[in-house]
Structures are given as C-alpha cells and as structure tokens.
C-alpha cells in the first residue's frame, strides 16, 4: 500500500488489460474504452512517482491534469472519427475497415 512497487504493478496490469482490450475488441468504441484504461495506467504511474520519488510533488499532478486534457481531446477526435467511419461503412467494426488491404 505504501510502496512504489504496488502502484507500479497496478498500473502495469491496468495497462496490459488495456492493450488486451485494444487488440481483442472488434468495436471501435470498445477499443476507445481500452485506450482510456491505458491512459489511466499512465496517470497512476505519474502520481506514484510524484508521491515517492519526485522532488516537487506538484509536477506529477500537473502531468496527470494534462493527461486528462489529452484524453478529452482524444475522445472527441476518436468519436468523430468513429462517426465518420460509421457513415461510410454503416458499421463500427474495425475488421470491416480494410480498404487499404494489399
């Protein structure tokens, strides 16, 4: 609970789950959700380093805030891409988006 390793392992596990989700889901929204998990894992890492290592405990918090900003931007863009793709393919199944197949 009060060790850096705990938090780092939690974050690593969360990140791996996110990766698994990104690879395995066929729906773009599912992938987006998994990506949010990965971003959160990164946030946990920052906060953990902030608590246990950093000279100035403000920096990690600011990073985390920015990650949230990035996540918001990413969600907005991703959702609009999903909408555009849906208009084109009538589906949000990533396996149908194969127009560049060689």
């Amino acid at each position: 609970m009060s060790s850096l390793y705990t938090y780092l392992f939690i974050a690593a596990l969360l990140f791996s789950l996110g990766i698994f989700g990104v690879f395995q889901r066929r729906s773009l929204i599912g992938m987006l959700i998994a990506i949010e998990l990965m971003l959160n894992a990164a946030s946990i890492n920052f906060m953990a380093f902030n608590k246990f290592l950093a000279p100035d405990p403000i920096v990690g918090q600011i990073y985390t805030l920015f990650i949230m900003g990035i996540a918001a931007a990413e969600a907005a863009i991703a959702l609009s891409i999903i909408v555009a793709l849906f208009r084109r393919l009538r589906s949000i199944n990533i396996e149908r988006a194969q127009e560049l197949r060689g």
Binding site: I77, S80, I81, A84, L85, R88
Partner: peptide
C-alpha cells in the same frame, strides 16, 4: 493543452461534418 483541446474540438466537427 488549451490549444490542443480547441483544435480537437474543431477537428471533431470537421471530420464528422466532412463525412
């Protein structure tokens, strides 16, 4: 980050509007 958010919003509008 403010700029990124702004661009993201505009981008979202443009992308879905384009489609």
């Amino acid at each position: 980050i403010s700029l990124v958010l702004l661009v993201a919003i505009l981008g979202a509008i443009v992308i879905s509007g384009y489609a």
